[in-house]
């Protein structure tokens, strides 16, 4: 730790960062490296890594971007659980030792950088976009597709996924089965199958209900526990199973895609909008 850091009164404690290092260009085996990091109030694990890079070791690599739990880039295995480094404050870990490793179940590119290409490939395989029979309307839209508030609630939770990959890292089935689709892609599949505007179940079920699909999930729940956005992939997978069960017995709802609403014409603003209240403070120019 440098001298100025030790004299800073805002430092509440010093923690030991134990970071896994791996250099693909060398022949060295991966190893854990220790760093002493001064912690100030509100400091996240990502801030700690930034501090290490700035003050102690510029060769340390990881992936991050937004630093506010939106982009999903900084997924890491922190103190025994997959977490977003930017979303977890060091003091909330309640430990003087912070162990940071790359996300399990992904190949390591370098240090804390996982190779997420496999995740994105599986994500693409479930066709995560609206599929409709009226392709002409999709290409040249004449209006909006109708959807009620209730229909929105059927899938909106699953649309919050930021593709950070923590769920795949926590899933015990993904740990042993490389071909298993995994919680993220299956959730993405259900997000669109549950969408009232979509008609793409037929095209997706080859992946969703394959031998490496939903039936490999035995509800360990780790995916939902670690999801930083409350997406609940375990719920989406069970709903996929339920839907398949109901359809196989002919109980499922016959799905007809939401109709196209007539275009809004001759609309003029201000019809029922009340007038703004009178100004109480005069403008400088007046």
């Amino acid at each position: 730790m440098n001298k100025s850091a030790t004299q800073d009164p805002s430092i509440i404690k010093t923690v030991q960062f134990e970071v896994l290092r791996y250099n693909p260009e060398g022949n060295e085996a991966p190893r854990l490296q220790n760093y002493s990091v001064p912690v100030i109030r509100g400091m996240t694990v990502l801030d700690g890594l930034n501090w290490i890079k700035e003050h102690l070791d510029s060769s340390l690599s990881w992936r991050s971007s937004c630093r506010m739990g939106i982009c999903g880039s900084c997924g890491m295995f922190i103190n025994g659980l997959p977490r977003l480094a930017c979303n977890n404050q060091i003091v909330h870990l309640h430990s003087d030792r912070v162990t940071v490793k790359p996300l399990p179940n992904y190949d390591i590119i370098r240090d804390l950088v996982p190779d997420l290409e496999g995740l994105f490939e599986k994500h693409r395989s479930v066709k995560p976009y609206l599929i409709r029979k009226d392709t002409e309307e999709q290409e040249k839209p004449t209006g909006e597709f109708f959807q009620s508030q209730q229909e929105l609630l059927n899938y909106i939770q699953f649309a919050y996924c930021i593709k950070c990959g923590l769920c795949m890292s926590a899933c015990p089935t993904v740990a042993t089965s490389e071909n298993y689709a995994g919680p993220q892609p299956l959730t993405a599949g259900w997000r669109y199958c549950a969408d009232s505007r979509d008609e793409g179940l037929q095209e997706r079920q080859e992946v969703l209900y394959s031998s490496y699909g939903v039936y490999r999930c035995h509800f360990a729940g780790a995916c939902s526990q670690v999801c930083p956005k409350g997406v609940d992939p375990a719920l989406a997978i069970q709903l996929l199973k339920k839907d398949a069960f109901l359809r196989s017995f002919g109980f499922g709802k016959k799905k007809k895609a939401g109709p196209v609403l007539p275009p809004v014409r001759d609309w003029t603003p201000g019809g029922k909008i009340p007038e703004a209240p009178a100004k109480t403070v005069p403008r400088k120019t007046e």
Binding site: N79, L81, R110, P172, V174, H218, F219, A220, G221, Q225
Partner: peptide, 26 residues
């Protein structure tokens, strides 16, 4: 570049770690 394999394998589903009790039941 060379990638380092990091799949947990059998210990991934055998070890419950810091996850919930459902994971142990699994």
């Amino acid at each position: 570049q060379q990638r380092l394999k990091n799949r947990l394998g059998i210990m991934g589903w055998l070890g419950g770690g810091r996850y919930g009790m459902d994971r142990y039941a699994y």
